[in-house]
Write a protein that binds this DNA or RNA. Structure first.
Lengths: 200, 200
DNA sequence: TTTTTTAAACCGAACGTCCGGTCTGTATTG
DNA sequence: CAATACAGACCGGACGTTCGGTTTAAAAAA
């Protein structure tokens, strides 16, 4: 693929993960890429088009978690695989952005809120992913229950919700505190506690 | 208090709950208030000052939940009081904004992310509230455990985290879907399920 | 091999618009 | 009369975008 275009997209993604669409200026994008405005508009018809392409290329692809790759034998294995997967994705993103500075945090919510306003059907796509997420978790719970691993009065959906939403909630707090990289360990600690409660 | 100033603040708050600080323009604020630029700058030295005053007057005050008002006899009563409290606060906000249109949704996260960049010590204040929140929940759990209401292998802090973060997670999703008003019922349903699991 | 052609890559000054903010003037109030 | 409350024309700067032009490098022609 065209390396310059990719370079622009990565640089802009880094900026969009730090501040909102409006706060990121063309001047800034051009400066950080080391290119000129002319070069930029040679590759993208507009700032909005760049944003759309970034969302489709990076955000939506990362948001689609591959649950089928996680352990199906035990629920314990499932959620541990999930945490490992998320941590790997996080490191892969850092590497993609060539973000050597550990201080620079990533805010994946502001970019999502912008996408809602800018990209048609973004909400629809995210909603689809959300349904897939909940069903994948609920199925993992069902398997754990069937195998005798889990024993709880809660429904599969309720447990799925607890895992998914506690994950989102912690993510939100860590973004606010600028410590997103701690998401994995934090989740594991909390989920292990909850697992002890629902296991047989 | 000065009614015109209050009118400006409420109108602007409504806008800041719909889009980001940068997306809300002075022109828009002036138009929606039905005033002029001269009038606005008579009451506020700048757009940023308006924003700061809105955060301090409305956001931070609403974010400070009065946990001491909730039931202390049972954990069940505690979290039910919490849900009722949140729903009342939500309706009070709607009324404050004279927001008769049910369609207009409330995004309290974008305004918070803006506040992080604009207001010094905002993060500190929110972090303090977060600690208070977690301790209030943990204490409620401890009381429930002491009274024999709760029986669980999870620690007080872990249960507190599950309640707080699942709340935040659902809130986040409802903001994305534009259905924040459903927060109360959604929480209650999920929490009742979890309560059945941890009760004696 | 050398020259010519061609198209993509890239540059940066310039453009019109919109932004937050100022300033001068005019009612209104006490 | 003095202070407050407002109106709106106006300002400089920043914004995203455009456009005429230059550089580069590979293909085609000599």
């Amino acid at each position: 693929m065209n390396t310059t275009k990719e370079h622009i997209m990565k640089t802009a993604l880094k900026l969009f993960l730090q501040k909102s669409f409006k706060e990121v200026t063309m001047k800034e994008i051009v400066q950080k890429t080391g290119l000129s405005k002319g070069a930029f508009y040679h590759y993208f018809p507009s700032k909005q088009d760049l944003f759309s392409e970034i969302i489709n290329t990076y955000y939506l692809k990362m948001a689609a978690v591959e649950y089928e790759r996680f352990d199906r034998k035990s629920f314990y294995g499932f959620y541990h695989d999930y945490v490992e997967y998320i941590m790997n994705e996080f490191m892969a993103l850092k590497k993609l952005l060539e973000d050597t500075n550990d201080e620079d945090d990533i805010n994946y919510l502001t970019i999502a809120f912008d996408a809602i306003h800018i990209i048609p059907d973004f909400n629809l796509k995210v909603e689809e992913l959300h349904v897939l997420e909940l069903t994948a978790w609920a199925e993992a719970v069902a398997r754990g229950r069937a195998s005798g691993e889990l024993d709880t009065v809660m429904t599969d959906d309720q447990i799925a919700c607890m895992f998914v939403y506690s994950n989102d909630g912690i993510g939100l707090h860590l973004i606010q505190e600028g410590r997103v990289k701690q998401l994995g360990p934090k989740m594991l600690e909390l989920w292990d506690g909850f697992y002890n409660e629902i296991k047989a």
